[in-house]
Computed example of a mutant assay.
Amino acid sequence: MRSFTLRGLTLFLPEAALKGNLERALSSGRYENHEADALLLHLRPGDRVLDLGAGLGFICALAAGVLGEGAVMGVEAGPETVKLARRNLAANGFDGVKVLKGAVVGKGEGQVEFGQRPAFWASALAGPDGWPENAEVIRVPARPLGKLLAKFAPTVISCDIEGGELGVLTEPLPGVRLVVVETHPQVYGPDGVAQIVAALRAQGFEEAEGAKKDTLVFRRP
């Protein structure tokens, strides 16, 4: 098990999970740095953060350090990644943050198929071109966005779900004032990004400070 320190938080993960550029991103502090910068810029006292695609638990832990454990909830589809997120949250003193296992969807109930990859951060639902390379297709609980919003009442959504955001962030977002989303144009192209932007604008969101590269930031005035 390897450990890395980012922004005062310690993240653990198995050696076997260090695929591709992940080790460099963790060692250099670039791991999820755009999302982290945007959240720290915009979080306010009293916010409640729903992290869609919790990964290693980094964004959940960062938000909990600002807002407290009860104000943060994560959702993660990969069964082993859920365990890692919970372990990392506990290791940093945030074991009260709840991380739900399941894939966030715009609509649907029951279970959905999920492509689990050795590189956990690239695991995803099936995209327009089918399953990601080397994916093991498993079934995980479906977590409809509407139910998550009703249950947790977040004011802030952080979203990094490897292309699934196209079907999620085009849904109504009652009560949400801030959205930080890593888009994946390699999955759905610029037209898909435009659909997300148009859907958020239609709900009264405006582009906000902190957007970098494929990470977009929207807030309601």
Rank of each mutant, 00 (worst) to 15 (best):
P185Q: 09
Q186H: 14
L169I: 10
D51M: 07
L22N: 09
V179M: 12
L125D: 02
E206K: 15
A54Y: 03
L26G: 01
D160M: 07
L52W: 06
R30I: 06
L6F: 05
G164P: 06
G74T: 09
L89V: 02
H184A: 13
P79Q: 08
A38R: 04
C60P: 04
Q116D: 05
A85Q: 02
G68M: 07
N21R: 12
G146T: 08
E209P: 00
G115E: 05
L178Y: 09
K213Y: 14
R117G: 00
L67Q: 03
V112F: 06
V99C: 03
E162G: 04
A90T: 09
G167A: 08
G110V: 04
Y188L: 00
T81S: 03
G70E: 13
A194T: 08
V99N: 01
Q116G: 00
E206Q: 15
R117M: 15
A17L: 09
G96Y: 05
I59V: 15
L62Y: 05
W121S: 07
L50P: 05
R219S: 13
M73Y: 00
A36R: 11
Q203I: 10
E109Y: 07
L41R: 15
L22E: 09
V82K: 02
P190A: 13
A63G: 07
H42W: 06
F218K: 05
T215A: 09
E109I: 06
G164K: 01
K151W: 12
L6K: 02
A208K: 06
P190D: 12
E109A: 13
T81G: 01
F94M: 11
E80R: 14
P128T: 02
G106E: 11
V82Y: 01
R201A: 15
V72F: 08
A38F: 10
F218G: 09
A122F: 09
A90R: 13
E35Y: 04
Q111L: 13
P174I: 11
P132W: 06
F152N: 09
A38V: 03
G96I: 03
L100A: 14
V140N: 08
E206R: 15
T183D: 00
V97S: 02
G53S: 10
V66F: 07
G68S: 07
R220W: 01
K19A: 13
